[in-house]
């Protein structure tokens, strides 16, 4: 797995995710990266990567909306000027 630090360089994070607990994709997976968003500017996140942790918070066992809320809040908070993603290329189960 890889730790990717995304600086909040644009007004949006600019990723779409699918998956979460109790779906076919048990951990959130990046399905889109929008041009001009912070994630795109960072250059290290890629479509297909599975998100294991966000700012050290595990995505394991979290349903889709919970995972999405955690990512949205991590981007929104003014406590940090970046969001740390632990990602993997592999679709790890549980």
């Amino acid at each position: 797995s890889t730790l990717v630090r995304v600086a909040k360089s644009a007004g949006t994070l600019g990723i779409a995710i699918e998956g979460g607990a109790n779906t076919r994709q048990p951990l959130p997976r990046i399905v889109t990266i929008q041009r001009g968003g912070s994630a795109h500017n960072c250059g290290q996140l890629k479509v297909g990567q599975v998100i294991l942790e966000v700012n050290g918070v595990s995505m394991r066992g979290r349903e889709h909306r919970d995972a999405a809320r955690i990512i949205a809040e991590a981007f929104k908070t003014k406590e940090r000027d970046h969001v740390d993603f632990l990602v993997t290329e592999f679709n790890v189960a549980l």
């Binding site: 779409a16 109790n22 889709h64």
Partner: peptide, 16 residues
């Protein structure tokens, strides 16, 4: 395991 996973629903997609 494979058959069980196929019975799970697809996920919605959220833009962040």
């Amino acid at each position: 395991v494979r058959e069980k996973r196929l019975t799970l629903p697809p996920s919605e997609i959220t833009m962040l």
